[in-house]
Every structure is written in C-alpha cells, then in structure tokens.
Design a protein around this nucleic acid. Sequence first.
DNA 1: CACTCATATGTGCATTGACACATATATGCA
DNA 2: TGCATATATGTGTCAATGCACATATGAGTG
Lengths: 179, 179
Amino acid sequence: MALSHAILVCLTERPMSGYDLAKFFDTSIGFFWKATHPQIYRELKKLGEQGHVTSIEEIQSGKPNRIAYSITQSGKDALKEWSREPVALPLIKDDLLVRLQAIEYVDKDALREQVAARLEAHREQLGQYYHIRDVRFSDGQPPAEDLGKLMGLELGIQYEQGWIAWCESVLQRLEKQKS
Amino acid sequence: MALSHAILVCLTERPMSGYDLAKFFDTSIGFFWKATHPQIYRELKKLGEQGHVTSIEEIQSGKPNRIAYSITQSGKDALKEWSREPVALPLIKDDLLVRLQAIEYVDKDALREQVAARLEAHREQLGQYYHIRDVRFSDGQPPAEDLGKLMGLELGIQYEQGWIAWCESVLQRLEKQKS
DNA sequence: CACTCATATGTGCATTGACACATATATGCA
DNA sequence: TGCATATATGTGTCAATGCACATATGAGTG
C-alpha cells in the first residue's frame, strides 16, 4: 500500500487538495508512481481516518469548494517508519518487450510503428525532464532538501536517454528486415 | 489482460506446463513481465476454454503428472491481432524514487542501505543478462527469429547498466551527507 | 523416521487498480 | 443555446494481482 505513502510524500511539500494531488501525479511524482483521482480521494479518506492528514474545506467563489489536506506529525512519523522498510525491485511490465520475444508471430509493420511511437514518447518525456532541470536546478548546488528530487530527475533523464538510444537502434534493424 | 498474451508468447517457443511457465516467468520472459503460478494456472484454464491452447496430460512416474500446453492456430491468430494494438508506456512504480522525493523526512541510514541493496540487485541481474548473451548469442549473427530476443536482452543490459551507474553516484553523494 | 527439496496443480481471499459514471459551478466559444 | 473546458469531489464495479494455504509424489539427507 505505497500509494498512501506517495501521497504523504507529496504533502510534505505543501498542503494539497485531491485535485492538486491528481495533477501532481500526472507530472512530478507521477514519473515514479501513477495514480488516478478516484484512487487518490479514497486514499485521502483513509489517511484522514488514520490521523496522518488533516483537512480544511476552503470556500471558493466561482469554483467548487476544495478540501485542502495537510500532513500531520503522525503522518511524518508514518513516513519515517515506512522509509525503514526494504524496497522491492520495481517490476517491469512491458508489452513491447513481450512482443519482441515472439517477433516471428507479430505484425512487423505494426511493431515498427509501435517502436517509433515509443521513441517519440520517450523523447517528449526527456524534454519534460530537461525543462524541469533547467527551471528548478539550473543555479549550481541545490539545497539539501532538494537533492533527492535532483537525483530522481537524473535517473529519469538517464532512463529516457537509454530508451531513446535503444529504440533508434531497434528501428534501424527492423528497417533492414523490411524487404 | 496481457498475461494471457505473454503466456502465448512463451508457448510459441515450445509446449510447456504451468510449472514450466512459472519457472520461465522467473527467468527469461519474466524480465519484462512478472507472474505467479496461481495466476498462470488460472490463465491457462481460460486460454483452453477460448481454444487458444490445447493440453495433454503426460503420465509421469516418480513425479506428479504434468499437463503440457501447446499454442493452437487460433492462439497464433490472437497473438497477431494483439500485436496490432498500440502499446502503453510501461508504468514505473518505484518506492525508492518516491522516498528520494522526501529525503528530509526519511531515515537516511536506511536509504543508503536500500540504495546499496538495489545496486547489488542490479549487478546480479546484469550478470544474468551477460550470461544469457554469452551462451545464446555469442556466435555472430543470430537467426531472424531470435533477433527480438537479442534486442530485448540489449535493452535489459542497458537498463541495468544505467541503474548501476546511478546507484553508485547516489551512494557517493549520500556518503558525503553522512557527517 | 522426520525433514526438506523439487516436481506438479490448484483454491480462496483481500487488496489494488482501472475505468466508467455521477454531480456541481463558472467561463469561453460558436 | 449548446458545447467544451477547467475546477472540484466523489461512487460503483469489475478485472488484475498478490499471497497464503492446500494437496500430492518421490528422492535425498540427517
């Protein structure tokens, strides 16, 4: 049940509503953990019952009211406890790689297109990472509390670069096979 | 529901029992798709009902009987159809990266140990990939039907190398922060 | 003789997760 | 007026997943 902890991690940055969190999970922390908004709202409810977060409803005019959640001391304690548990290797589940294993049984034209699409997606993601690096970490040494975020970003950049190089080499080899 | 397709992919190589498949998912194809044995047995049952696989029980002496599954023409057709569907980006879910985002709230000694353990795991995995490459792809150009497997292996190697480099650099920076 | 390991196939249950659907307000656009 | 979009919070449901448990045979080890 790491979604609850991912939410707590987000709330260490600033108080957020479910809507904020959903957007956050589409961008920043979402690179390492995905979640949809129904999941997030349900988890926030549980976290409230456990006392790990508190909420205040903010009356807004022109927009629906929002419920802002903040992490409590109990939530911070829970984070520290969780951080001592061993982490599992992230499990890879990738249709594309599975298809490659049976290359003689798949539609090769479709495969080429899928690799090309994947290449595009990784290039776009890399662009996003570069953008974040430039606006947030451009000026020399980051403060200690941001070091982890920078390291995460570096992993993301390396990960995307690796995929891009691989996709390009695969495309070349698939083109050769074309005729 | 890609597990069924992953199983079909395995069965293109040779007929296998549920037990064989479970072992296969722990080694070769399991690098790109994980599955436990209860999942596999249940999925095999469904695939049989759909006519994508056939089974014969092999009477064994000294060991329990095994049920060997083979892919049918209908199964091969299903594979080809599936191969035309667009593939999703593999979603990353990594506790370690999430913890890094809240570096000021986690136990840093534990974090160091976790990164070190992760480094070890990636080194081991890389060793496995090298081993497979050496025994299976050492002699020049592989046959066309193995090209996809080789490319998958290359991705795995690159992926692990990237993680290893990243873990090493993170460990260095965490050590500096120690005092 | 008990214990463990490898082979082999399953059931049952709880959690997680994805996805469609529901509801409400206000703005901008055609 | 109708439609899309952004904001904002949820419910209901089903599939996927993980994990403990159950069962059976025979070989090897202490």
